[in-house]
Computed example of a mutant assay.
Amino acid sequence: MNNVEVLSLEQAERWDELVYQSEHPDVYWLSGYCALYEANKEGKAQLFVYKDESGFVLYPFLLREVHTLPYLQSSQQDSDPKLYDIITPYGYGGPICSLGEEQDRKALFQAFEDAFQQYCQQYCIISEFVRFSPFLENEKDYSAVEPMFLRNTISIPIDRELDDIMAGFTAHNRNRLRTSFKANLKYRIVDYPNIDTFIAMYHQTMSRKDAQAYYFFPATYFHQMFQTLKDNITILEVYNEEEVVVSTALFVHMGKGVHYHLGASDPAYLHVSPNNAMMYYAAIHFKEKGYSFIHLGGGYAGNDSLYRFKKGFNRDEPCSYYVGMKIRHEDWYKELERRLNLESSGEVGYFPSYRNPELQVSVLKECEMGV
């Protein structure tokens, strides 16, 4: 495939040059961002590049080994090839391109999709899971993977006067901000490497919320973020008159966009609305830096309390977050289901089915029982 190039982190400089040349460059496509999840042992970071005379398509993903899954090894046969699947790193992603006009993109994406299918067949990539971008809406371009709506997300437009930004807040949110102002909460930027307060408060918040183990990112994750993303990452702290940090948040940014990535707060000070103050001060700070929007993300599950909190910062229509799932190698996908005795009900369940966490649990139970 002469029009195809697949880059790894060893070609990080070329990888990032291409991202900067795309129509809407964003931090989630940078090699440094994807490197975080390779270091977290979630797969090998790759950038699939399709290029022809009209332009190019970039598609970053994590390439994961399937044949090494412990509950599949007992059914391995000597003649089996090495099997893989791919997934978007935590956050948002999917294919982006260098073209602006919809008709031009359509032809380019069709050629990309044909080339990518050949690539998946050649390297036994049997399934694909895509986390599309709510702010780029790139699910509209990638017709090979049928998008599925997951949840709404919220974005604060900050390319306007402060009064106009505030006018987009709900009345309840503005009341909460008045509480913050009365408490004289202020903010500051945290310089690297002084990020221990953020890390500790973040882990405490995850424990308090009984978050899944995945979200307890180790300290090395945060230190690597500052080393690889450098100018594309900012930590804000909100503190009170006693210099106590009451809220902290990590933002990633590039081009026109800022993204609320991770945050935490001290529950002892929730009565002074520190998280409302955080979003307000973030809007002020990044507006002054020349950014156009802050994407806050959505809730934990649908339009829950977290989503409603974020919705207080923009009363306009929310963004739509889609994911995409595609079986790229039908024969091998079905073969793995057969070996694992998985029943296909025809309903959308865990995808890919052979990675369902319950399979790992069942293997551990069998080992404990001596089966």
Rank of each mutant, 00 (worst) to 15 (best):
N3M: 05
E10Q: 09
E10L: 11
S22N: 04
H24A: 06
V27Y: 00
Y33D: 02
Y33A: 12
Y33E: 01
L36T: 09
K51V: 00
S54K: 14
S54I: 11
G55W: 15
L62D: 02
L62W: 15
E65A: 14
L69C: 03
S74H: 04
S79M: 07
I86M: 07
G91M: 06
G91E: 04
G93F: 15
C97V: 05
L99K: 10
Q103C: 01
D104I: 07
A107Q: 11
A107E: 13
Q110Y: 03
A111E: 06
D114W: 00
Q118L: 08
Y119V: 04
Y123P: 11
C124D: 10
I126A: 06
S127P: 12
S127Q: 15
F132H: 05
E137A: 14
K140W: 01
Y142I: 14
E146T: 05
E146R: 08
L150K: 04
I156E: 00
P157M: 09
D159V: 04
R160W: 00
L162E: 15
D163A: 14
D163Q: 11
D164M: 07
F169N: 05
F169Y: 05
H172E: 10
R176N: 13
A183M: 07
N184L: 13
L185T: 10
R188Y: 15
I189W: 01
P193F: 01
T197A: 09
M201L: 11
Y202L: 12
Q204L: 07
S207Y: 06
R208D: 09
D210I: 02
A213S: 11
T220H: 02
F222A: 03
Q224K: 13
Q227Y: 07
L229T: 13
K230H: 05
D231M: 05
I233Y: 10
I233L: 14
I233V: 15
L236H: 10
E237L: 01
E242G: 13
V245Q: 12
T248R: 06
T248A: 06
M254D: 10
V258L: 00
H261L: 11
H261P: 04
P274I: 04
M278C: 08
A283S: 15
H285T: 04
L296H: 08
N303R: 07
D304A: 02
F309G: 00
K310H: 06
K311I: 00
D316M: 04
D316W: 05
P318R: 08
S320T: 03
K326L: 12
H329C: 03
H329L: 05
D331C: 05
Y333K: 11
K334G: 04
E337C: 15
E337I: 10
R338E: 09
L342Q: 11
S344P: 14
S345I: 00
E347V: 12
F351E: 07
P352C: 01
P357H: 10
P357N: 06
Q360H: 10
V361N: 09
V361M: 04
V363D: 08
L364G: 01
L364V: 09
K365M: 13
K365Q: 13
K365V: 06
C367K: 03
